[in-house]
Design a protein around this nucleic acid. Structure first.
Lengths: 340, 340
DNA sequence: TTGTATGCGTTATCAG
DNA sequence: CTGATAACGCATACAA
């Protein structure tokens, strides 16, 4: 109902016996600017309404070279951290007139690169990407070539590109200090991909806290290589087999934390009686777990909003490279035991 | 590096001193069809590679009226059910050559309608939508107007439109039967939006099981009106205040289940000792909760894949309306107590 | 205040 | 086997 053959500027112009340019001007809100007569303006608008006219964004894009579209590349959209961030990215982007083309890179560098190509083919105006692989140079090339871009969650220490992340160093430092204050000394750390800034910075925070408080750091207690549940499980199993056991585990991602919980349960141990656990990245449901999980919460909403904001700055012509780290928050629950 | 001015068919044609048509044919894989000489074909391809040519999808879309784009409208992408489904939608769509434009309708009918308009403006080839509001007629109009469409998770009983959901009736029936088998008779049911097929069908399954087993159904035990955590919380509180209490609660969504857990804990009661809980919609972390949650798992992956499949059927010209309900699975854990 | 003409990059028709 | 040429729907420089 409404559009039989889909109205176009041309068809409206024909109906009204006027030129396309006038119709175009009115319907793209430039009536004032071109001093179109109020009467014509009204005629055009009425006719457009009557036909349920909706401008063809494709045609407009071809002409203006702007698609009002942002590419969003995420390693795993079903991961609650990313889906929350993505939500706010979408909401904020739409508020600013942009649509999101979503690509799930499936934690796979190849897919990631293909996604970038795909989005280029689709002429996105800008790109927000949470990179998995070592594609800093590729991205830098695109950025320098004029593609507005912002990294999400991860960045490349040796490549200057706009990014927005949690303050991973500070967050991990606070987490570790918290454990130390509770009397823990043998604190194991299950890291994620060692080549990701996310993991590196969190480990750095962990190290900094240990050093700051003069706690001896046993390098064999920094384990793992991946943000998966499996990694958390395997490494926790291993940690539990060596005596003396750590009294606390600091797990650097929500998935590894689950792996740790599973492993600890399987060994017949309890949190926090037998071993304490603290997780980087908090969840809605952390509070409901068998051992309500003390965790570092990331500012997902702010991360999403900021990513869009930084991108829009670039879209507006501002080419200065800006990186942002947003403050985390320690949510204390009861997975950490107070020693002595 | 690579593309200075971005190569086009025209520029390649000029470089090679041949016509755009030939270049177009070669680069869109129609060399054979048009019997282009192998030599020219090679020249064109080499030049395209050299310039890092990538076809302008926008221009192509304008000409062909196909954008190779699917609109995906979701009430809340940060909800784990939807983010999982969305993931598989994206993966499957991409496999078939389509990109996803994501809209989060924020559980808001107005936003939902705006999203539809927006996606039309963007000329998506088809639409996958999990509708919140009563927009069956609107969607039916679009569908009849030729827009390929599939409903996700919810459908409209009185409007014939393709859809894919879990088998909510059967799933709820099994869940309720499970509770009955465990000796429960006073089983409360916390529903979602009463105007959603999702909630209605689950309630229908609940009723069917009660009737089938001759268990008296107290209508005051069917409560709630929303899939939110808050609703689960409020209604559980209320349920717990009236004596005799239900011995079990069947919560029809993952968020209400959390609300129920919170309310039960607040009342100083335990699951399943004091009251049993069974949730429709399962989670990765259900197993780790204080009371590992017995739940009906939905086939998220299959739902996503099927939605894309149904849409692509339509895209391929098949206009028959097909609805699909996919089997759920009861994951038994330990939130349901065996009575006597 | 309005109209004309051109082009964005492709595809497709029609003619060699 | 190849090449003109028109058209998709819109935006805009230039005229009037």
């Amino acid at each position: 109902m409404g559009d039989n053959k889909t109205a176009t500027l041309k068809s409206i112009a024909a109906d009204l016996g006027i030129s396309v340019s006038v119709v175009s001007r009115v319907l793209s809100g430039k009536a004032r600017q071109y001093r179109i007569s109020v009467k014509t303006e009204k005629r055009v608008k009425d006719e457009a309404d009557r036909l349920g006219f909706s401008p063809n964004q494709i045609a407009s894009s071809l002409r203006t070279k702007k698609t009002l579209t942002i590419g969003l590349i995420i390693p795993d959209i079903s991961n609650s951290f990313f889906s929350s961030v993505a939500r706010f990215v979408e909401i904020e982007a739409r508020k600013r007139g942009y649509s999101i083309i979503l690509c799930d890179s499936q934690e796979n560098t190849q897919m990631e690169i293909e996604s970038i190509r795909l989005l280029q083919t689709r002429s996105v105006d800008g790109l927000i990407i949470s990179p998995m692989g070592q594609i800093g140079d590729l991205l830098k090339g695109l950025f320098d070539g004029g593609l507005p871009l912002v990294l999400l969650d991860r960045y490349f220490p040796d490549v200057e590109l706009p990014y927005v992340t949690s303050d991973n160093v500070q967050g991990a430092l606070e987490a570790t200090e918290y454990l130390i204050e509770k009397g823990h000394q043998r604190i194991a750390c299950i890291q994620g991909r060692p080549d990701s800034s996310t993991s590196m910075d969190r480990v750095a925070g962990y190290r900094a806290a240990m050093e700051k408080h003069g706690v001896e750091l046993d390098e064999t207690q920094i384990v793992g290589d991946d943000f998966s549940e499996r990694n958390g499980y395997v490494e926790t199993k291993r940690l539990l087999q060596h005596q003396p056991r750590p009294t606390a585990i600091f797990s650097l991602g929500n998935l590894p934390s689950f792996g740790a919980i599973r492993a600890i349960a399987e060994e017949g141990l309890s949190i926090p009686e037998d071993i304490s656990l603290l997780s980087f990245d908090d969840h809605y449901y952390s509070a409901f777990l068998a051992a309500p999980l003390t965790a570092i919460a990331q500012p997902k909403k702010e991360i999403g909003l900021f990513a869009v904001k930084l991108l829009c700055n670039q879209l507006a012509g501002n080419r200065e490279v800006e990186g942002v780290s947003l403050a985390t928050q320690l949510n204390e629950r009861s997975s950490v035991r107070v020693l002595n």
